[in-house]
Design a binder for these strands. Structure first.
Length: 428
RNA sequence: CUGGGUGUAGCGCAGUUGGUAGCGCGCGCGGUUCGGGACUGCGAGGUCGUGUGUUCAAGUCACAUCACCCAGACCA
C-alpha cells in the first residue's frame, strides 16, 4: 500500500472526542472512524489489524473442531420470547425495530437462542453430537454508556462459539479444550502474560463461568488476584467461594481488568427453550447441553492499542500489525530505490506500507511512522544512495515489541541490511 | 440513569459589558528548502449543534432539545 494513495490521513493534534491514549492514536493514525458514541468504522489500516486478530482466533477455533458460520444480525421476536429474553426487563440492551409489514425485530446482541433454534434442523441423534458452530459477527447492544474507544461499544465484533453436547460430561471435556485454545490465542495476541482465566458467576448449570481478564488500569472490572495467578471476579469474591478454592482473602490483591473473553456453561436452558433435543442410544429424547464461548476482537484491538502504545503512537506485535514493514523513501533517488524494493516485495507476495510521498519531509514521515506503529522501519534515501551506490542495502530499525526484536537487530539502533535479510526477519 | 463538563472552518481552539466571526494546524497556487512535522507570499473554507424566545441587534442572554466526553450506577 502506497501512503500517497491511502485515503486516510494522520492528524497531528488530538481528537477531542477521545480520552484514552489508544483510542486517540487509533483515530489520529486513521485506523478507525467514529460514527457516533460506541460505533466505529474500521478503515484500511484498522481493518487489517482486526482481520489479523480474527484470523488467529479462527485458526485456534478450527483447531478444536469449530465450524465457522455466519448467523444473522436481524432476529425475530418469536425465538427470543421462548427463552424470555425478549423482554426489556430481562435484557435491557436490545435495539429493537420493526418490519414495514408490522412484525417486531431485534438487532442481535448475542446468539444463544438463534443458534439453538437453527441447530434443531440439523440435530436429531446423539450421533449428530457434539457440534461446535462459531462465527464472527457484529453484535448490537444499547449500552447506557459507551466509552474508551473500542473498549465498550454499542456495535462491536464478537467471536462466539457454541458447543452442543449430549451431556455435561461431554461438555466439560470441550470446555477445558476451549480454555486451552483461549490460552493459546491470548499468547498469540501477546497479552497472555497479563490475561488471566478468572472465576465468575456461573448460573444454574455450573458453579462458575470463566472470564478472561486482562489486567489494565483502563479496565472496568475489578478482580482479585493471588501471586500464583489465581484470579477471581469481584462478583464472586466471597467467603464461600474462597473456602471452596482453598484460598484466604488476605492473599489477594485488588486489580482493575478488562474482560477480553468468557466461557460459559449454558446447560440445557436455551435448548429447552427452543426445543433442541436429540435421541439417545436408548431412543429417549434428551435436551442438548450447551456452552457459549466469546472473544471480542474489536475490544482486543482496543486493549492492544492501549497497552502497547508509546508516547508517540501505536505499536503492534509483528503478527498483528497492518503491515510488517513501513518503507520510507527520502529524496528522488531514495524514493526510486524504495520503489524497487516495494516492487520486489510485491513480487514475493508481501504487502508492505510504502511512504512514497514526494512532498513530505523527513520529520513528517518519521512522525507518521511512529504514530502508525508498524514494527519494521526501512529507509532508502539519497544520502544512503551516495554511500551505497548499489542500493542493495537500506537502513532498518526495529520499532516493534522489545521482546520480539529480531536477532539481526537491536532496539533503537538502525542497521544496514539486504533485501534477503529483511525477508528473513519478516518470514520468521 | 445520576452528577460534572463540552458543542464556533476538515482537526485543535479563542471570541471582552450583546453591535454582521478570528488564530494555529491542515488544504490550494507560487518561491526558498529538504535526515525530525522548516520558512515565506497569495488564496479557498463557517446559516457559531438544533429550535423557540428576549432585544433595534444574539456566537454571547433565557428556556427547551440533540450530540459528545468524564466519574459513578448498570453490563445476558
Amino acid at each position: 500500500m502506497k501512503l500517497s494513495q491511502l485515503f486516510t490521513k494522520t492528524t497531528k493534534s488530538n481528537i477531542s472526542d477521545e480520552t484514552s491514549r489508544g483510542a486517540q492514536f487509533l483515530s489520529r493514525a486513521g485506523y478507525v472512524y467514529k460514527e457516533m458514541a460506541g460505533v466505529y468504522a474500521y478503515l484500511p489500516l484498522g481493518l487489517r489489524v482486526l482481520e489479523n486478530i480474527k484470523q488467529i482466533i479462527r485458526e485456534e477455533m478450527n483447531a478444536i473442531g469449530g465450524q465457522e458460520v455466519n448467523m444473522t444480525a436481524l432476529q425475530s421476536k418469536e425465538i427470543w420470547e421462548k427463552s424470555g429474553r425478549w423482554e426489556s426487563a430481562k435484557m435491557d440492551i436490545w435495539f429493537k425495530t420493526e418490519l414495514s409489514s408490522g412484525g417486531e425485530l431485534g438487532l442481535a446482541p448475542t446468539h444463544e437462542e438463534p443458534i439453538a433454534a437453527m441447530m434443531k434442523h440439523f440435530i436429531s441423534s446423539y450421533k449428530d453430537l457434539p457440534q461446535y458452530p462459531y462465527q464472527f459477527q457484529i453484535k448490537f447492544r444499547n449500552e447506557l454508556r459507551a466509552r474508551s474507544g473500542l473498549m465498550r461499544c454499542r456495535e462491536f465484533w464478537m467471536k462466539d462459539l457454541y458447543s452442543l453436547s449430549t451431556n455435561k460430561e461431554q461438555h466439560d471435556q470441550f470446555y477445558d479444550k476451549v480454555a486451552d485454545a483461549y490460552a493459546k490465542i491470548y499468547d498469540r495476541l501477546k497479552i497472555g502474560n497479563i490475561t488471566f482465566k478468572t472465576f465468575a458467576s456461573g448460573g444454574v448449570f455450573a458453579k462458575y463461568s470463566h472470564e478472561y481478564q486482562t489486567i489494565s488500569e483502563l479496565g472496568e472490572d475489578t478482580v482479585y488476584q493471588r501471586a500464583d495467578g489465581l484470579t477471581i471476579n469481584k462478583e464472586v469474591f466471597n467467603d464461600e467461594v474462597l473456602k471452596e478454592l482453598g484460598a484466604k482473602q488476605d492473599e489477594f490483591e485488588q486489580k482493575r481488568a478488562i474482560e477480553v473473553g468468557n466461557i460459559f456453561t449454558l446447560g440445557t436452558k436455551y435448548a429447552d427453550a427452543e426445543g433442541l433435543k436429540y435421541t439417545d442410544e436408548t431412543s429417549q429424547q434428551q435436551s442438548v447441553f450447551m456452552g457459549s464461548y466469546g472473544i471480542g476482537p474489536s475490544r482486543v484491538m482496543g486493549v492492544l492499542s492501549e497497552i502497547f502504545s508509546t508516547d508517540k503512537g501505536l505499536r503492534w506485535p509483528i503478527n498483528l500489525a497492518p503491515f510488517k514493514i513501513h518503507l520510507i523513501g527520502l529524496g528522488e533517488t531514495g524514493i526510486k530505490n524504495a520503489n524497487a524494493f516495494y516492487e520486489k516485495m510485491l513480487q514475493k507476495g508481501i504487502e508492505i506500507l510504502f511512504d512514497d510521498r514526494e512532498n513530505a519531509r523527513f520529520g513528517e514521515k518519521m512522525a507518521d511512522f511512529e504514530l502508525i506503529g508498524c514494527p519494521l522501519r526501512v529507509i532508502f534515501s539519497d544520502k544512503l544512495a551516495e554511500t551505497d551506490p548499489s542500493s542493495k542495502t537500506c537502513e532498518v530499525l526495529w520499532n516493534g515489541l522489545p521482546d520480539e526484536t529480531p536477532a539481526l537487530l537491536t532496539e533503537n539502533t538502525s542497521k544496514h541490511l539486504t533485501f534477503e535479510q529483511i525477508c528473513d526477519i519478516i518470514e520468521t
